[in-house]
């Protein structure tokens, strides 16, 4: 059969793995790259600050003579009401937000995906039961759940993680269930059975990659939400307690001095916002990069 030769530009069709293709598309998104870079820098900075600074003297040590210094050359973010260097506290304090939120989301991921997959796979009564509980938990505002859990069970780190993981778990359960249910019915799954692929291969090669995309996106976005939730709890006084430089706690402390030294309050909030912004940019970028419909 003759083919018409086109005098066209050379179009290369390279076959790429999913990960490489996603990375390539993500790199094009300036916002996502900026977000990624920021997060990496923040993580490195907070780890390094743990080695450079001594907790007792640098982070929570009081320095009354230098108190209320507005942001300037010596103290980039100024000093607070007892003379502590806000800049070092912010950098050091990132660890609380990051570890708690990543930890809570990780727990939520495992529990949520487990229950969601079970619900989606078995359907029927199991599905009904799991999803009803899930819907109730989803409907209750995250703050309320966290407040109740922490107020009743105490403010240990473990309880905080538990309280904050519930929100993540409900999100992941929904996603996992939806993915599993869609894929169960997909024709190419049936086709895979028909050509004799063993079940574990089907799960690994077909089901997992398709569930993965929304889960990855949601993880990034949920870390951001959880950071806000964690700092909210500290702000209310039932999270990480002062004098630890947790951003929400810093905000709470700064309330009393808003009139005269507003920056004590504003800066920790800015830190939260910029971090969550970076995560949201990254998450949105991942969502676009992973969207198979946009394949060019």
């Amino acid at each position: 059969m003759e083919t018409v030769t086109a005098k066209s530009t050379n179009v290369q069709y390279k076959s790429r793995s999913l990960a490489a293709e996603t990375w390539r598309r993500l790199r094009k998104n300036k916002g996502a790259v900026a977000g990624m870079v920021f997060i990496v820098i923040l993580v490195i900075a907070t780890i390094v600050s743990g080695f450079i600074y001594d907790y007792e003297t640098d982070i929570i040590g009081q320095n009354i003579s230098e108190r209320f210094t507005p942001p300037g050359l010596k103290y980039p973010f100024g000093t607070d009401q007892v003379g502590r260097n806000i800049f070092t506290r912010i950098i050091y304090g990132a660890r609380y937000s990051l570890t708690i939120s990543v930890g809570a989301v990780a727990i939520g991921l495992v529990v949520g995906v487990l229950f969601g997959s079970i619900a989606g796979f078995y359907g029927g009564l199991v599905d009904d039961l799991i999803m009803r509980v899930n819907d109730v938990l989803y409907a209750i505002p995250n703050i309320m759940i966290a407040v109740v859990v922490v107020s009743l069970f105490g403010t240990s780190t473990f309880n905080l993680l538990l309280a904050l993981s519930i929100n993540a778990a409900t999100s992941f359960a929904r996603i996992a269930r939806a993915s599993v249910m869609t894929l169960r019915g997909e024709e190419y799954i049936e086709a895979s059975y028909a050509i004799g692929l063993p079940q574990w291969k089907i799960i690994l090669k077909h089901i997992v990659p398709n569930c993965l995309s929304p889960i990855i996106v949601q993880t990034t976005l949920l870390i951001g939400t959880t950071i806000i939730a964690a700092s909210s709890l500290s702000f209310l006084g039932i999270g990480i307690p002062a004098p630890a430089p947790e951003w929400g706690a810093m905000l709470s402390e700064g309330r009393d001095y808003m009139r005269s030294a507003g920056y004590i309050c504003v800066i920790p909030g800015l830190a939260i916002m910029v971090t969550v912004l970076a995560l949201n940019l990254l998450g949105d970028g991942l969502r676009d990069a992973l969207d198979p419909k946009l394949k060019k």
């Binding site: 059969m1 003759e2 083919t3 018409v4 086109a6 005098k7 066209s8």
Partner: peptide, 20 residues
């Protein structure tokens, strides 16, 4: 009919059906 309709981004100079 042998061949395929030409790519509308790259139409030939002469009659579009000529190649086929």
């Amino acid at each position: 009919i042998k061949g395929m309709m030409p790519d509308p981004m790259n139409l030939p100079e002469g009659c579009a059906f000529a190649p086929r």
